[in-house]
Design a protein around this nucleic acid. Sequence first.
DNA 1: AGCACGCCGACT
DNA 2: GTCGGCGTGCTC
Length: 616
Amino acid sequence: MQIASVVFSSPLPQLDKPFDYLVPDGLKDSLSFGVQVLVPFGTAKKLKTGIVIAIQEHSGHEGKLSEVAEILSGIPILTIPQFELCQAVALRQMGQVGELLGTAVPKRSVRAEALYLKSIPTTWINSPSTKPSRVQNPKRTFVTPGVLDTDEQMHWTSLIINAAEIVIRSGHSVLVVLPDFRELIVFESALYDSGLIKNSVRQSSEDSLKDRWTNHIKAVNQSGLIVYGTRLASFAPCNDLSAIFLVDDGDESHQEQSSPYWHSRDVLLQRSQLENCQIEVIAHSPSSEIARLCEIGYFEHHVLDSAKPLVRITSTSERIDQETYALISKTLRENKPVLIQIANLGFASALACASCKEIRRCGTCNGTLWLDPSKTERCRNCKRTFTDGCSCGGTAVRPISLGSSALAEQLNKSFPKANIVHSSGVERLTMIEPAGTLVIATPGAEPSVAGGYKLIVLADSLTMLGVPRLRGLEQACQKWANAISKSATDGLVVIVGLSGKIADQLRDLDFASVIRDDMLERAELGLPPATRVMSVHAKNMKDLNRLKVLIAEQVDELEPIPTAVANTIVYGYAIASGSAVATKLKVLVSEVSKSSKDKLPGQRVLFVNMDDHQVI
DNA sequence: AGCACGCCGACT
DNA sequence: GTCGGCGTGCTC
């Protein structure tokens, strides 16, 4: 009798392996890789849903085997590359394959499936591949698209669609992973315009279960498709995958916030290796990871020679200097749109010393200070209060960047006739009329305008760079570059408050050099992305200390890093020892978890994040 | 996740 | 003397 190996979609480590079942004769012909089945499991009364990952003649299991009870749907719902990707990511992130299967396979919709099977000729399903073979050495490129969105030929959507059209014509598939719903809409409308929408399949967590399942099984069973979506789509099925496009990998939405904390970029890099296919990362400003991959020659950087707006950089500590005020006023009089990007909402967001003009910083963690409601100087990062003055001796401070509410008041006074609108993460505008509107927006929430903005003021560069986080500069550059892309061809960009080398580099909009320098500096300090940093968090310090001892004894690849975060231990490790670390750690973590005094049913004792960039 | 097995406190 | 508390451990 044949044996079916079945895996379950479960985050439990004990269940994270294949379980073997006998295949009854009646089901023999319908079972193959990726088919969903119901099987008896343990003493539970109801049958458990699993996915067949192998049909074998023998089982390695000593005990007696149960039989597969039922087949859920006749068609496969998981592809072999998808499963291999889940395994690779689980190993890299020290997670369970089972918890990733849930992202690779959406929840089944029986109605949607029945409809799909009725509308599709059965020959389409599992048809053998007759496509020409793919290129032997697929390219890995980082592409900077046209600086301006108005540049249609070099717009990121055009770059992807032009390349994708060639790929799907040859019967292969394309995967496009976008940061946000907004980019998804932009890309989708470009697909409509190009006529390729009929060859496309969308994977978005915002879609209904029914749509998601229809699109999922379509992608499993057909080739020559453009599969596109937000970060979950990194795991989507793609038959004969030949090209991967990742858009704006520095955007935070590419980071999965729950265990095992994967990132679209890491998943897709692994996918391109496993499936031996081309990968192209497209962004106006590179992430430090991509900068590193370019530096070591793993990626090739293509810069498109495109139209750029004029850039003016002021080094004043004022938020908006007199000259910029005059520019805003002039542009509004011409009835042209103006964008002011500010770091945050609310009122005062940072403090400068009144005498030496330096930004006041926390003596412990170097975070920026602000005036809390009781008018005390307080660190934004570690929340400590300060009464001692500046190192120059001065004690007086003044606010250097006001939030949008305060700035709006100020601008209302200065431009009483102007139409001032706000856009932020909470109340986000997507589009404004091209007439003389003054937009105040927080990073990432800038509305688009037909023809682009005549004037863009990046008002809070000091505050944005003052964030004492690893990715402060990288994220500021990403937000600035994306705001700049909304400029008109004859637009002017004013970056307020920058000086030195970065100012010189940004005058030419050379974000790649800024990030490269930052990345090399971090490498010298042993910080990511040249090394990886992991964290383990626990509610119980006793469990954490036990793990700490075991790590010191057994995992010499891990280098302890001090951290201010409570109930957390942090380690650095070389990229090359990642799998060794994950393998060893998995054993230790389960050992500690098993004997923990402080565990709740179904809940983790230790939370491991193999790439935690928040803790440092 | 379920569900049973297993070893200590209050009941007829 | 038992009934049942839920800690612990297994499920092909």
